[in-house]
Design a protein around this nucleic acid. Sequence first.
DNA 1: GCATTAACCACAG
DNA 2: CTGTGGTTAATGC
Length: 254
Amino acid sequence: MLDTRKCDVCHNIGIFGKWYQLKTIMDQPGQNNCVSCRVKSLAVETLNSQELSVLQTNCAGARYRKGELIFRQGNLSSQITYVKTGLVKIHKQGPSREQILMLVKSPRFIGIPTILGNKIYQYSASAVESVEICCIDTDIFKTMILRNGKFANEIINGLCKDELRFFERSINQMQKQLHGRIADALLYFSEEIFESDDFIMPLSRAELGDFVHASRESVTRVLSALQRNGCIDIKGKKIHVLNHYLLQTISQKG
DNA sequence: GCATTAACCACAG
DNA sequence: CTGTGGTTAATGC
């Protein structure tokens, strides 16, 4: 089933269940207008004008620069955060090392499990690129879930997709060895995050290591091995996928 | 045993 | 922050 509504900003057609793309115009900082917001989530789109104005008086926008912490594991959560633009990493300190659990492409809610489950953040979120977010008051958010079934439904849809994606990634991480995991990560960036064969890797080698559960040196080695066999071309942070098929094979065979 | 995989350490741009 | 090389421990054939 396709949702053929067009985004009035970038004119991309939204695929059913997927947030609209947004590549340009943002609301002015500090001047929140939920009614005219260009990056409403599917959930927020189900709200009527009265609910929207309630939302508007209970949320605030903020900007974070590359590398800044949005919230920290162990802190008390006070509001739910909606990422309007930019890329965010969800990470957690494990017993031995830091692990990047997932990358979140905007626009998207983060931190819902914390609000509805444990009040203490069980993980941290940081800006990978410069990021714009909206903070919504927890109680208002909960009230909307209780009162508005459609809103709740969209929220649940989002959480389910997250979980499925996470299961998929878990299998990859657990059953593949390094070459496969890195090939996976490259495909993930190329296909899901940037939707292009040419992109600028926003993570450092060390962060990429945290993402695929490997040391920074190993990441470097595998990357240059992939370059040697003509899979990809690397110039610093610029990555060009030359042979998608080969990359997929490596990803599948581990 | 020998080969492979990947982490750790050290050093150099 | 990155790339390389040497070393080492674990695992597989």
